[in-house]
Simulated scan of single mutants.
Amino acid sequence: MKQKQIRGLHRDLGYFYIGLIIAFAFSGILMNHREVWKPEKYTIETRQIQLQLPAQELISEKYIDKLKEEIEIDDKLRRFNIKEGKLKVSFEKNDVEIDMKTGAGEVVSFIKTPFISQTMKLHKNTSNWWIYYGDVFGLSLIVIAVTGAIMIPAGKFTFKKRGWKLALAGLIFPLIFLFLLA
């Protein structure tokens, strides 16, 4: 490829993906801190409940449907599990947590944060078309990185003279994090 073609490819892919790069960066920051900020949703009501729960082996989807009526939730079930002695039920707009021994629990009702919750879906979406679009995006980012590295033809700031050291440092940092700190 000629220098002019490399620059053109780099520029055009950069322009095409600039919105997606910004959206992914924004939603990625939110995803990194989702346990602290809870940016995807905000609580509108919290109420305490007291119930008599059956034995753990009797808790099924059918039981959860009855529980929904008992605690006055009109919502679609997402999932439920029993972990560390607590029944945790997740609905579209409510989360329920009940202590299996005491029956004491809490219902947290929430609303999805407009725009932010939709943006965060960029990182969570698993539909086939989005996966393939994400693959094309990933390959395009590789092309943008490579064309950016070889775009400068001569001088002291070329990839060959200086850029490879920075690229290597940029690669080593996440590897150190993955293998030593994670």
Rank of each mutant, 00 (worst) to 15 (best):
M151I: 12
A23Q: 05
A25E: 02
F24D: 07
A55N: 08
Q118C: 08
K86N: 03
R162M: 13
F137R: 10
E92H: 14
R162C: 07
I64C: 10
M100K: 06
E106I: 11
G170Y: 05
E40L: 06
K121V: 10
I49C: 08
L13Q: 04
E84Y: 00
L58Y: 11
G134Y: 06
D99Q: 13
S90R: 14
Q5L: 13
M120E: 05
G138Y: 07
D12N: 15
N94W: 00
I98P: 01
R11A: 15
L181N: 01
F24T: 06
I111S: 11
L67H: 02
F115C: 01
G163I: 07
H10V: 03
I22G: 10
T43A: 06
T119G: 13
I44D: 05
T119A: 15
K66A: 11
I21P: 04
L175T: 06
L53E: 02
L168E: 02
W129D: 09
K101S: 11
P114I: 09
K160N: 10
E72Y: 09
E40S: 12
A55R: 03
Q118E: 15
G8Y: 02
K38R: 15
Q118L: 12
S90L: 12
E106T: 14
K93F: 10
G19K: 06
E45T: 11
K161P: 02
A167T: 14
N128F: 08
H123M: 08
F157T: 13
L30P: 02
L13C: 09
